[in-house]
């Protein structure tokens, strides 16, 4: 792949990753979203699904790139894909806060229309006790929120300047947390579905594959470098 093509490919990837939210907006405009039986539930699942799928795509970049040296340019898409995972995760979190938690968005908007700028905050104060109970008591909310916080930290530290300021080693150490974010996101999914429901299984298998490949690579690297240290006791 000639280097010159990469900026064009980036445009294509931008467009592709914006399609889900564009379709959501189209459905909002046309009224199809309102005709959904439970629009809030639909938006929650759509944003959550895409956040996880795009996170998995970003985790797939390195293993796919290693298939062949001609795929090395893929690494240049990884940052952008990761940022989109954060974008959808943030939409997902916002859906929870403003549409799911009990926050009365309709009244907040009405207040704004009548010039009462404090209404959204007043509504937030009303919804806060329930949100606080969710944060302190509900494991699936905690683990999901943890995944979002990790993605937030990775987003803030994603510019080149920050990388240089932090130093490559530290930066890499921090950005390995993305594995933890993936695991947390999948656990979040399992904990939110009912017992017996296996819908998170495909995503889980993909994550296991992507993380498993890394373990295998790390072991192979160690063996190839010819060290005599036994692999089992080594940290991967």
């Amino acid at each position: 792949m000639p280097t010159k093509a990469v900026p064009w490919i980036k445009v294509v990837v931008h467009v592709l990753l914006l399609i889900p939210v564009a379709l959501l907006f189209r459905d909002y405009q046309s009224g199809a979203l309102a005709n959904q039986a439970d629009p809030v539930n639909y938006i929650t699942h759509l944003t959550g699904d895409w956040a996880l799928w795009i996170l998995l795509m970003s985790l797939a970049v390195t293993p796919v790139r290693r298939i062949h040296s001609s795929l090395a340019w893929l690494i240049r898409l990884r940052r952008m894909i990761g940022l989109y995972a954060f974008f959808y995760a943030t939409l997902h979190l916002a859906t929870y806060v403003f549409l799911f938690s009990g926050y009365d968005t309709a009244t907040a908007i009405d207040g704004l229309r009548h010039g009462k700028l404090g209404e959204p905050f007043h509504q937030f104060a009303l919804a806060w006790p329930a949100i606080w109970v969710d944060i302190t008591k509900r494991k699936f909310i905690q683990v999901g929120f943890a995944a979002w916080v990790i993605l937030l930290a990775l987003t803030i530290t994603s510019p080149q300047r920050v990388l240089r300021w932090m130093g490559g080693k530290n930066w890499q150490r921090l950005h390995r947390l993305v594995y933890l974010a993936g695991i947390a996101a999948v656990i979040h999914y399992w904990w939110l579905v009912k017992t017996g429901v296996t819908r998170p299984l495909p995503d889980t298998l993909v994550l296991a594959l992507l993380l498993g490949i890394r373990v295998v690579f790390a072991i192979m690297k160690r063996v190839r470098s010819g060290r005599s240290v036994p692999v089992t006791s080594a940290s991967v």
Partner: peptide
Amino acid sequence: RSHPRWSQARERLLNSNSILPKI
């Protein structure tokens, strides 16, 4: 009595064609 994973104190009433939840 909360469901272990969410409160049962409120509900989304699905009886209108609005995307904003009717709590």
